[in-house]
Design a binder for these strands. Structure first.
Lengths: 167, 167
DNA sequence: CTAAACTTTCAATAATTACTGAAAGTTTAT
DNA sequence: ATAAACTTTCAGTAATTATTGAAAGTTTAG
């Protein structure tokens, strides 16, 4: 496999995996491109490489910056803006986990709390609703906590801290 | 909040969270409904409760059964088929994690392996591609392994095994 | 200040994904 | 075998989500 083919394969695969970490295709593709680039890229270059429109590029770059995954680079002597992504995978994972926890998991936990704390009127169906949503709330809470703990270990959290404890 | 309101809130919230665990809305809603039901439900009852068509119900039930989350119940004396979902949240999490690993993560790891093992032609961009995809492959691998290990602890894996080790 | 270089916004449109409903298929009871 | 009861399939349609491109906005140089 040649460089160009490998590069395209990577961008496509990682792009379509977007759903797994909760972002859309173009966003994921832009990030992928920056991730394997040896230098910051301009909007022009990104558009050209991915064959997407200016507007699309602009909007998705903005979202990536909102997530804290991509940053603007000022290059002296250049009028254009350039973009880079976080290059350290552990740091990336940390950012993604934090954001998803904040944006998606926390709000769900809130709803589960509300639902599981309705008044028990003694009927079987109410009891079941309370019991099951409570269980789900506890599980979601535990997973969220675990994820955040993992992700806050600054140094090689995965291999160092966890694996040896679980083997 | 009354039972009916709480129930609807739960089904909607859990339904729209579908993306987080990788299934579509109707699928997630059907599962939610069964999850808080005190008895197995027929297709008729599911359609009625969720206001969705027969075809939609049939297809999504089939998918839920493919995932191993929902099972058919035969009720004696009844001609109709009835459905139930796994009621234990830990077991549910285990099934979901296993399926997502198999369906989504493993194939991505394969691609990352392929891409990261292209021939190093000595150029900076090839080196960068190899280095970064390798790092991503290692991370994805680690996360996948961790997830599967967690999820295979049969008894109270989360609270018992992991938390105390990380505090 | 003005014009050029660049970025953002957003209404229109395209692409994708989900849903319906009726016809075809299957199973069970008689 | 036949018919009733039920489930599945799938072409057509609807709903949702992503993308374009051109106009409006912003910044910088001179």
């Amino acid at each position: 496999m040649e460089y160009q083919e490998a590069k395209e394969k990577f961008i496509n695969t990682w792009g379509s995996l977007g759903t797994l970490w909760g972002i859309n295709k173009a966003m994921a593709q832009i990030q992928s491109l920056l991730f394997i680039s040896t230098k910051p890229l301009s909007m022009e270059e990104i558009m050209e490489e991915l064959k997407i429109s200016r507007g699309n590029t602009s909007m998705n770059l903005r979202q990536l910056m909102d997530w804290g995954i991509v940053t603007k680079e000022i290059i002296r002597g250049e009028r254009k803006e350039f973009f880079t992504t976080e290059k350290d995978v552990q740091e990336l994972a940390r950012i993604v986990a934090k954001e998803r926890s904040r944006r998606e998991i926390k709000p769900v936990i809130k709803v589960l709390e509300d639902v599981s704390s309705i008044k028990d009127d003694g009927t079987a169906k109410t009891k079941e609703l309370i019991k099951q949503t409570k269980a789900l709330k506890d599980l979601t809470d535990d997973l969220d906590t675990l994820m955040n703990k993992l992700v806050n270990q600054k140094q090689n959290w995965l291999t160092k801290s966890v694996f040896k404890l679980m083997k």
